[in-house]
Design a protein around this nucleic acid. Structure first.
Lengths: 197, 197
DNA sequence: GTTTTAAAACCGACCGGTTGGTAAACTTTG
DNA sequence: CAAAGTTTACCAACCGGTCGGTTTTAAAAC
């Protein structure tokens, strides 16, 4: 039972935090939806921030880093890296479109909502962005050494992440499948231009 | 006096909404800081959403569209448009750096916080993003007709906006002047690559 | 040019409801 | 039996919004 309740809290909190945001997702709602008592919640987590941190790190691992790594695994030259990035963009678009562009990226949501107010969460997010960046740089460096990357790897990685976040934001606002498709296509086109194979 | 209080409310609400976000900025705080009574506030605005709409539209006009237009005015070919965009990026970076990367872009903040919860605000934001996009397209079209734009104008405009929003997000998270400078530089480099003069 | 009058501006107490979090009691488990 | 897990009841602080009533303003009537 012990694992069960914590697991159910994390699961429910994940969904709620993703769709409602930090302030929007209340502990009351989480425990009600998870079928747990409030006291039970605070027995496992000292405060709201604690579960948000756990949820966020879990989210980044399963929704960003792992899928991206799955596509990039084994990509060692310009062409394979390019294809991998393209496929990841495609898959990511598919996932967001399927959810009706609701939620967007939890990391980006928290970044804009909490970065100015929560130093600890901001620190975690800094690390996460850096992880993401480093992951990309690891695969981009060989491409750069081939001389086929038109930008410094780290610079390209940051711009790639930034553009992805921006496009996700616009998807959330427009919630339009046609438009969203073209926007993600623009990111793909960017990759196309910056990696010449 | 009548104009005075409304003006003070808008002014104070702007600052608070920019720094604290939609949920974070409470009417109580706004009226306290503005030196107005709560009843006075609700005499002028039917609800919270109303002032947020006014503040947002005012923000976009004065902080985004007008400055961008100021730089782009008179830019009619590849080189002048490129320089104008570069200068705007530079100016925008300076503004954010000066604020210690606090606040970021109010439009982006509201987009991620409210797009899923507030249909009316989402509609307004849709229009705003379209305005921004059209403004850029207006200046980019001649460049495309010169054959010097490597992307379809609208696609480039969207990607430009998205990347700008993403970089602003990362600035807010990292709050690092060196890093922020390089990130905005990456956006400039992107413009550099996509417009050849 | 003073008085009347009515609307607009403004006030602060108050409303029901929600928030994150706590305390103490009870239940299960080792 | 003790420790961990779980529940119920509760808290002060705060939220957006409403209320009846007071002050300020400005046009109309004299």
């Amino acid at each position: 039972m012990a694992r069960n309740i914590k697991q159910k809290i994390v699961q429910t909190a994940s969904e709620l935090l993703w769709s409602e945001g930090y302030d929007g997702a209340s502990i009351n709602e989480v425990v009600a939806k998870a079928g747990v008592s409030k006291g039970g919640f605070f027995h496992h987590y000292p405060n709201k921030q604690a579960i948000v941190l756990e949820v966020l790190q879990n989210y980044v691992e399963t929704e960003i880093l792992t899928p991206l790594d799955r596509h990039l695994a084994g990509a060692t030259n310009a062409m394979t890296v390019k294809v991998a990035l393209m496929n990841w963009i495609q898959e990511s678009y598919g996932a967001q479109a399927q959810k009706g562009f609701m939620g967007g990226c939890m990391l980006g949501n928290f970044a804009l909502e909490r970065a100015d107010k929560d130093e600890q969460l901001r620190d975690v997010m800094k690390t996460i962005f850096l992880q993401w960046e480093n992951q990309l740089v690891g695969y981009l460096r060989p491409v750069a050494q081939e001389g086929k990357l038109l930008m410094e790897p780290r610079q390209f990685a940051r711009m790639f992440i930034a553009t992805y976040q921006g496009i996700t934001m616009m998807g959330k606002v427009h919630k339009d499948h046609n438009r969203g498709g073209r926007d993600f296509q623009a990111l793909a086109e960017l990759v196309e231009h910056m990696i010449r194979d």
